[in-house]
Simulated assay, not measured.
Amino acid sequence: MTKLFARFVKDESGATAIEYGLIAALIAIAIIGGAKYVGGEVNAKFNTVGDELKKATPSTGGGTGDTDG
């Protein structure tokens, strides 16, 4: 029984698995944060380009630019 308890105390595989899990979680949080930031920047750039294209396109709706009818 004493040998079993001593082996259980010396076993660090569970602690290692927890450490790897924490590292993976931190990496995932960093990736999600970076993707949100980059995604917002890319979205803003596409909106800017889209607005400039709308300004450059001549309207064909009788001069009002309203295409809803």
Rank of each mutant, 00 (worst) to 15 (best):
G21S: 04
D68L: 01
A28W: 07
E19L: 04
D51L: 09
Y37Q: 07
A44C: 04
E12V: 07
V9E: 11
M1A: 08
A25P: 00
L53I: 09
G34H: 01
G50R: 10
A15G: 04
A15V: 15
A6L: 14
A17Q: 04
I29P: 02
K45R: 14
E19N: 05
F8D: 06
G34T: 05
F8C: 02
T64G: 00
D11A: 09
S13F: 04
T57W: 07
T57Y: 01
F8E: 10
K54N: 11
M1F: 10
G69A: 15
G34Q: 03
A15M: 09
A25C: 05
L53Y: 01
S59F: 03
G39M: 06
F5I: 13
M1T: 14
V38N: 01
D51G: 13
L22S: 07
Y37M: 13
D11M: 06
V42L: 15
G34P: 00
F46E: 13
I31D: 08
L53D: 07
L4W: 12
K3N: 13
A25S: 10
K54R: 07
T57R: 09
Y37H: 15
K10P: 01
T67H: 03
K54F: 08
I32W: 08
V38Q: 05
I29H: 05
Y20I: 14
L4K: 04
A15F: 04
A15Y: 05
K10W: 09
L53R: 08
N43P: 03
A6D: 13
I27M: 03
G69W: 09
G50W: 04
G40H: 02
E41F: 11
A17G: 03
Y20N: 15
G33H: 01
D66S: 00
V42F: 12
G65H: 02
I27Y: 05
S59R: 06
A35D: 10
P58T: 03
I18P: 02
E19Q: 07
A6Q: 12
K54I: 10
A25L: 11
A30V: 14
T60L: 05
G61V: 07
P58F: 00
I18G: 02
I32N: 03
V38W: 10
A15T: 14
K55V: 08
E41P: 00
E52S: 12
E12A: 07
G50K: 13
I23H: 03
F5E: 14
G69K: 03
D68V: 04
R7S: 15
G61E: 10
G40D: 03
L4R: 04
K55C: 06
G34Y: 05
E12Q: 03
G61Y: 12
T60S: 01
K10S: 12
D66C: 02
D11C: 01
V42I: 14
V42S: 07
L22Y: 03
A15R: 01
A44M: 12
M1E: 13
G62Y: 05
T60P: 04
K55T: 12
K36V: 15
G61Q: 09
D11F: 09
A35V: 15
E41V: 14
F8K: 04
I18Q: 06
D51W: 07
G39T: 00
V38M: 08
G62A: 02
A6I: 14
S59K: 08
Y37N: 06
F8Y: 11
T64P: 01
G34S: 02
V42P: 00
A35S: 11
T16Q: 14
D68F: 02
A24Q: 10
T67Y: 10
I27V: 12
V49M: 13
